[in-house]
């Protein structure tokens, strides 16, 4: 049988013509198979898959196995619609190895707020939200996460501005959180962000720490000694006073 010469890394093989075609066929079949496998995708429970065909949203699928066109003709965005996201404000999560301070550290640029009686309070709070409308979330606002942060700060600033320091610190924490939640939601609705605020929770609060030049030797995050500040829990603070 007449053969064809095939060069493969410095070796020359003589392959029978029939095998030559067979190899090409198998390669083609494999390529097709890979493409076919790549066209299927699975959406996990709690997720939604938004398929964009040539720029346009063509389908939104729930959990299960679905099919899309390969080679970037159809693009898939997975959005966790049931997941409860949380955004943290006014603090940065404490590192485990930071030793002495297990409490989350205040982050003054966000934490520092003015109460209704013009006193400064440092506040930590958490916003929990869900992505309700994946298409809106993907396309209506430039950077949804930034938007959530900006709106979260604005809402809490507005909410706490109507309550005195005493109320923000002790008696009206729940009301303030509820009000901030509503203000945030109103903003998200007007932006058509597709996000539903589930819960706003106030965490640790303290009177804003005044850092004096003398204390600059010590780490700035620690409140001045003897000042009626800090302590990690609100109730221990009440006792101190």
């Amino acid at each position: 049988m007449a053969g064809k010469k095939v060069q493969f890394s410095n070796h020359e093989f003589e392959v029978a013509t029939i095998y030559y075609w067979l190899i090409i066929l198998i390669a083609l079949a494999l390529a097709l198979l890979v493409t076919a496998i790549m066209s299927f995708y699975t959406i996990a429970p709690g997720e939604k898959g938004v398929v964009v065909r040539l720029g346009k949203v063509s389908q939104v699928n729930g959990p299960g196995v679905h099919w899309k066109l390969p080679w970037e003709i159809d693009r898939l965005h997975r959005i966790k619609v049931d997941y409860l996201y949380s955004a943290e404000f006014g603090f940065r999560e404490a590192k485990i190895d930071s030793g002495a301070a297990p409490a989350d550290e205040f982050y003054p640029p966000e934490a520092r707020l003015l109460t209704g009686d013009l006193k400064m309070i440092d506040l930590q709070w958490v916003v929990q939200y869900r992505i309700q409308d994946p298409v809106a979330y993907l396309f209506n606002v430039e950077n949804p996460e930034n938007t959530i942060r900006a709106a979260g700060l604005a809402a809490m600033r507005t909410a706490i501005g109507d309550y005195s320091f005493h109320e923000a610190f002790q008696t009206e924490r729940r009301t303030i959180a509820e009000q901030a939640k509503q203000l945030m939601q109103r903003k998200f609705d007007s932006y058509k962000l597709g996000v539903a605020v589930q819960h706003v929770q106030l965490k640790e609060a303290r009177p804003a720490v005044k850092v004096e030049p003398v204390e600059m030797k010590a780490p700035i995050v620690n409140p001045p000694v003897g000042a009626p500040v800090d302590s990690t829990k609100t109730d221990s603070m009440q006792k101190a006073w």
Partner: peptide
């Protein structure tokens, strides 16, 4: 800072911070 004319409960605790303000301001 404020959004409404809501009457605030201003306790003595916040006097520790000694912000010189007239009471009428509340």
């Amino acid at each position: 800072v404020r959004s409404s004319g809501r009457h605030m409960d201003v306790s003595e605790i916040s006097d520790i911070l000694k912000v010189p303000e007239k009471k009428s301001f509340f």
